[in-house]
Design a protein around this nucleic acid. Sequence first.
RNA 1: GGCCCCUUCGUCUAGCGGCCUAGGAUGCCACCCUUUCAAGGUGGAGACACGGGUUCGAGUCCCGUAGGGGCUACCA
Length: 491
Amino acid sequence: MRTRYAPSPTGPQHIGGIRSALFAWLYARRHGGQFILRIEDTDRKRTVPGSVKMILEAFDWLGMDIDEGPREGGALGPYVQSERLELYQTWAKWLVENGCAYKCFATAEELAAMRKAGGGYDRRYRDISAAKSADLEARGLPFVIRFKMPLTGLTVGKDLIRGEVEFANEQLQDAVLLKSDGYPTYHLAHIIDDHHMRISHVTRAIEWLPSFPLHIQIWNALGWEMPQFAHLPVLLNPNGKGKLSKRKEQFAGADGKSVPVLAREFIEAGYLPAAVMNFLSNIGWNYGDNEEIFSAAQAIERFDLKDVNPANSAYPIAKLDWLNSQYIQRADVAELCPLLKPILEKAGFEVDEARLQRVVPLLRVRLKSLKDVAPMAGFFFADWSAFKAPPAEILIQRKMDQKGTADILRGSIPLLRRLDTFDADTQHAAMREFAKATGYKNGQVFGSLRAAVTGQKVSPPTFETMEVLGQEESIRRIELALQSLSDETAG
RNA sequence: GGCCCCUUCGUCUAGCGGCCUAGGAUGCCACCCUUUCAAGGUGGAGACACGGGUUCGAGUCCCGUAGGGGCUACCA
């Protein structure tokens, strides 16, 4: 069992492509086969340098290992089409010699005129004599090689996902196999490569379905045994309108966050690779048992191309946020720390690793994205001496007023100062008692302290936070907050 | 325009003729819990596109219509 992912190196990797690759990879792994990466760089105009590197980075990050490819090598390489030109030319020539293809000398202008007239290429060179063809070639006219598509009859293709699909041959044109620059088109190249690389299952996006009959005819003309085909559904934009595009700005969510579409954007957005894998494999396929959270290893145990949903899907990006938070919650502190540290550093904080390890358990359940760590817990790593009391609108919580907040802060200080040990439990007990004595609700007391000490509306839990900050610093902050409240009263 | 594919809650999906008064998840809304956030718990609203068949019986099979997606390049 051998599957492949065969992208064109035209820039950053699109998540739609990654998902197609994922299905091919899962299938190969499920059956103990090989997963091959092949670069289809036959369009010289669109090829952008560095693309292969980006593709590889995406695969490495996700943990999708490649058995054969431009980096890995392999017995059936090279795995880059521009390095296999001779092969394509040989077989194109063979097809011409065997009457299955012909040289076409139509100029760009002629073609444009035909298109304008409607109907497309009119096969004007299909039946010219060998002598005439040779003559035109001898005169140095540029030409392409076109496939002689049967003019009548039906071609039926078998697709693993949707069964048999019928096409009337007359609907198809005589597709170009070899361009005038000597490069093959996709139609020719992928067949020759899939054959020579012994691909058993071709997975590709559904936009290839219309040219499936052409490919079947080429396989037949070549006399080769066809692999199995699965035309995969595609990802639609989050609103369900159109194929998922790279212009994701227009799909920014209510929170103003733009929707990640390119592979590297998932890294930048603070998603865990396991969450992304889970997310992607749960679109158009599902693990079963009403299980939403499953590992790649689990998916491998059950994946089958036959079970892929034939319908396209709107990109359910909101689910990724949820999945990511689930994965972060379940991750080990040891696993999270090295991921969080660079994010904090990039945000300008100097990270003490020991402190980070103490802090991570406090905020794990609050992170939807790794990137949330900076706004959520950055204050732990900031210069404490520069801490400023937050404004009144943060200090004074819901269902509280200025006086009440000040009362609570003022009353807490001596109690907190008196504590011999400053762990969270001890503080908690003391403050609970304080609430009881003063008649404030626990939440009012704890919440006011939270705001005073962290300066944030959303933060790690109050007492654990104060424990990390220490007695002296915590009290200092409460005093600062109290001071700013009083100043405001005075002003 | 022609051809092809697709169509279950807003969204991702389960369902492969009777187990469906259609299940799960997400999102949304309540309530509970709680260190008034988050997480967690409980509950709620929410779908078989429409019309014909076939069948004792249809979300499940067939046809049509509508809607969505794609292809129609010397791009992939």
